[in-house]
């Protein structure tokens, strides 16, 4: 069978589908001072998966606000800098108008994913951390 670390080199998704892969990738991103990018990506996935049951609205609103505050509000933050202004205003609008939708972070997640695929993921595959691991 293919060892997991070879699978990680196939695609970003194979890497993010494996606990050890995520752990190593996060260690690399932390070195580069951009672990927030990965945390944001998972926060978006987690938000989409939130229970849609009644009575959960308050929790979802609180969570949407927390994601907005931590990653998007500060325009100098590593995540905020890599999301399009239109996408950021859309999210801001949703939060301000209390219009909480499971897909409200989808576009931002797509943009951040593209940055990872073009930038940090290829760098990770060439990094000492990954090469030493393999």
């Amino acid at each position: 069978p293919t060892p997991p670390y070879l699978k990680w080199a196939e695609s970003l998704h194979s890497l993010l589908d494996d606990q050890d892969g995520i752990h190593l990738f996060r260690t690399f991103l932390k070195q580069e001072d951009c672990a927030d990018v990965l945390d944001f990506w998972f926060a978006c996935s987690g938000f989409r998966k939130q229970d849609t049951g009644e009575g959960n609205e308050e929790k979802k609103l609180k969570l949407a606000k927390a994601i907005y505050k931590k990653y998007i509000l500060d325009s100098n933050g590593i995540v905020s800098r890599q999301i399009k202004p239109a996408t950021k205003s859309f999210i801001k609008d949703c939060v301000m108008k209390l219009h909480i939708d499971p897909a409200m972070f989808d576009q931002a997640q797509t943009e951040i994913q593209a940055v990872m695929e073009e930038n940090t993921y290829p760098l990770f595959l060439k990094s000492d951390i990954y090469l030493e691991y393999t």
């Binding site: 589908d17 606990q19 998972f42 926060a43 987690g46 939130q50 969570l63 927390a66 931590k70």
Partner: peptide, 20 residues
Amino acid sequence: IDSEDDLLQECISSAMPKKK
């Protein structure tokens, strides 16, 4: 009451793959 950080951490963990 969950603090915002706890809520965020819980959300991030919920999206991670489970141990195979």
